[in-house]
């Protein structure tokens, strides 16, 4: 149970927030955006944090999920859940297809390849206007329905998005704690070293790449239904960068860091509304500052400082959480 302590703490925070602040904008509206971003970040963290591979094109997978759901439900009037499944399947195929050649690249070459992939996918969303709606986007995406229950209010979305996040975190935790997880950490440490210990790195890297793409695609499908409208701007290179920042801000290879990072970065434009002209400047400064002064991430840095306090709190919370 001990290794899931953090998970229960997270679940408790997520459950308590809307109970304490039921009509609060920052909880029920921004909370949904945070959960969706966090879900992608948790997946990206598996790749970046545990295999040490960077992806500057993860927004593309987010977009593939979103457009699969959007297109299939509007143009072909499919059931949203079927569309979601097909979206995941399509992402799986694409990720599996490009993973092998892409992951053979290292460092900067990998960065360029993922970046290029992201740009190509974005162009494919913009150009075929008659199918995707082009830059004006795709409207009238139907609401999601769970067992006859329409997900059409903020609080319901809060529940669904955060439920998805918890599911994602659970999967990630189990992956990290599995044999694959051990091997993963070996990859990050030293690839050649791990190889000598008989770890099939190639296969594991591909697997993790695909899993992390699926996280993004799943979040994308939810995003499409939650917004009811999608356009290529939401899946641009810029968003890929933001995702990387979320992971880094929280601390790579930290289990809950990416969630923290996603929360901070999603809240940033909401809280900086007074300094809108400075928003870009601040984002850049954060990226440089964290990497120079706190390379292990803000979350890890902070939680080490407040760890004694933190542990006490989770113990007192745990019985309530289950």
């Amino acid at each position: 149970m001990k290794r899931y302590r953090g998970f229960f703490a997270l679940a408790s925070i997520i459950t308590l927030a809307p109970i304490l602040f039921p009509v609060n904008y920052f909880v029920t509206v921004v909370g949904v955006s945070i959960a969706i971003n966090a879900l992608i970040a948790v997946g990206l963290n598996l790749l970046m944090g545990y295999t040490g591979q960077i992806s500057l094109g993860h927004a593309a997978f987010f977009g593939i999920g979103a457009y699969a759901s959007g297109l299939l439900t509007t143009l072909l009037s499919w059931n949203p859940w079927l569309a979601l499944l097909v979206g995941l399947l399509a992402t799986w195929l694409v990720a599996e297809l490009i993973a092998r050649p892409i992951l053979r690249l290292k460092g900067h070459y990998l960065a360029m390849a993922t970046l290029g992939f992201g740009i190509i996918i974005n162009i494919l969303m913009v150009q075929p206007t008659h199918i995707t709606g082009g830059p004006d986007g795709l409207s009238d995406i139907p609401v999601l329905n769970i067992l006859g229950w329409d997900i059409d209010s903020d609080i319901r979305w809060y529940i669904v998005a955060n439920g998805a996040l918890l599911l994602g975190v659970w999967v990630a935790l189990n992956l990290i704690n599995s044999r694959i997880g051990l091997a993963l950490r070996a990859v990050h440490g030293s690839e050649v070293g791990a190889q000598m210990m008989g770890v099939d790195i190639e296969k594991i890297k591909i697997k993790i790449f695909v899993v992390s793409a699926l996280f993004a695609a799943f979040a994308g499908s939810l995003f499409a239904h939650q917004q009811g409208f999608i356009s290529p701007d939401s899946f641009s290179f810029h968003f890929s960068i933001e995702l990387v920042v979320m992971v880094v801000l929280g601390g790579m290879a930290s289990k809950y860091g990416p969630i923290f990072g996603a929360a901070v970065l999603t809240m940033l434009p909401e809280t900086l509304v007074v300094f809108e002209d400075y928003e870009v400047l601040i984002l850049g400064a954060i990226m440089m500052g964290i990497m120079i002064f706190l390379p292990q991430g803000l979350w890890v840095g902070l939680s080490q400082k407040i760890k004694p306090l933190f542990i006490k709190k989770t113990i007192s919370v745990e019985p309530a959480g289950g």
């Binding site: 970046m48 040490g52 960077i54 500057l56 460092g107 900067h108 960065a111 960068i241 990387v244 920042v245 880094v248 790579m252 002209d277 400075y278 928003e279 870009v280 400047l281 601040i282 984002l283 850049g284 400064a285 954060i286 990226m287 440089m288 500052g289 990497m291 120079i292 390379p295």
Partner: peptide
Amino acid sequence: VVSTIIITIGASIFLRGLALL
């Protein structure tokens, strides 16, 4: 490698923000 990528992307965003101001 990953950190230097992030630092320089950060620097690029920072310079752009500065230029905007």
